[in-house]
């Protein structure tokens, strides 16, 4: 059995509102193993970004706790890198400056040459060698997001948190970046929590796909285990015999079941062990929390 890295234990988030408290989600349970790629799908307002912010340490839960490697999250950490939706590059720094800023935050006493070498290596990994001296304003959307990935990679995190990293890109660039993200994450053994609205992206990237019902009071409706083989290739996944079963399941969920499952959960529904869905014809195996 894989080693448990992240453990979301009964987490709730409530915001004070005009008409009393709003509960985004409550009693949320999920475990993520080391090296696992988890995609979260759900409609806007289901709390997936809130959960990411709590994982990042930028926000704190109203109840419950999140453990990483057995220790409770107490704020942001360099072990958990965030790839922001809007790339969030510092526009007054060059590509190299942006990545080096992260590197020098990680290794505070490292000499300048080492910082630069690490930054250059990360930039080369995302295929941007040669663009080190450019400012973010001189880069295309896809290149900016690559810099964002390089910045996250450069600090050698154990967990990567991605908030719709590719949603603002055109289809072609998105495909290329998804491929590279998957390669890089597999090579470096990253554990990934990624939010997406793109069903195909989730099917290509994720080992498990977490489906969240609509908010408020969102819950994890199901966890879909991706039946596609590990050596799947971007642009070829729709030839896989299980592809349409997964895709239809996810689309059905987004279209109708995301509301139904919030209002009337199945009778044997257990918050701590949301149903695990396998669509490869094998018998379902409960994923112990």
């Amino acid at each position: 059995m894989a080693e448990k890295l992240i453990s979301i234990d009964g987490v709730a988030k409530r915001f004070p509102g005009a008409g009393g408290e709003t509960t985004v989600f409550e009693d949320l349970w999920l475990r993520i193993d080391r090296g696992e790629f988890v995609c979260v799908i759900g409609h806007s307002g289901c709390g997936k970004t809130t959960l990411l912010n709590i994982l990042a340490g930028l926000d704190s839960p109203s109840e419950g706790a999140i453990l990483v490697g057995g220790k409770e999250i107490q704020g942001p950490s360099l072990d958990r890198a965030v790839i922001f939706q809007g790339h969030a590059l510092l526009p007054w720094l060059t590509v190299l400056g942006n990545v080096a800023y992260a590197v020098s935050s990680r290794w505070r006493s490292a000499p300048r040459s080492e910082v630069e070498a690490r930054a250059r290596k990360a930039i080369a990994t995302v295929g941007l060698a040669g663009a080190e001296g450019k400012r973010p304003s001189e880069l295309s959307g896809g290149m900016k997001q690559r810099v964002g990935i390089a910045r996250a990679l450069a600090i050698e995190p154990t967990i990567m948190l991605m908030d719709e990293p590719f949603s603002a890109l055109d289809a072609l660039t998105r495909g290329t970046l998804q491929e590279e993200a998957r390669r890089i994450c597999r090579e470096t053994g990253q554990t990934v929590y990624m939010i997406t609205h793109d069903v195909d992206e989730a099917i290509y990237l994720a080992d498990r796909i977490v489906l969240m019902t609509n908010g408020p009071r969102a819950r994890i409706a199901e966890v879909v285990v991706n039946p596609l083989p590990a050596d799947r290739r971007q642009g070829q996944i729709h030839h896989d015999p299980h592809y349409y079963a997964v895709r239809n399941h996810l689309i059905d969920f987004l279209v109708s079941r995301s509301v139904i499952l919030r209002d009337t959960p199945p009778p044997d529904y257990d918050q701590r062990n949301p149903p695990v869905i396998r669509l490869d014809g094998r018998t379902p195996v409960a994923h112990a929390a």
Partner: peptide
């Protein structure tokens, strides 16, 4: 906010944050 979040996730201290993020921004 996103630039400040970058500094937070990189565990940049208050003083360094003031000089490296807030001042240039």
């Amino acid at each position: 906010k996103e630039w400040l979040n970058v500094a937070l996730t990189l565990e940049v201290g208050t003083l360094r944050r003031a000089f490296t993020i807030i001042l240039p921004a």
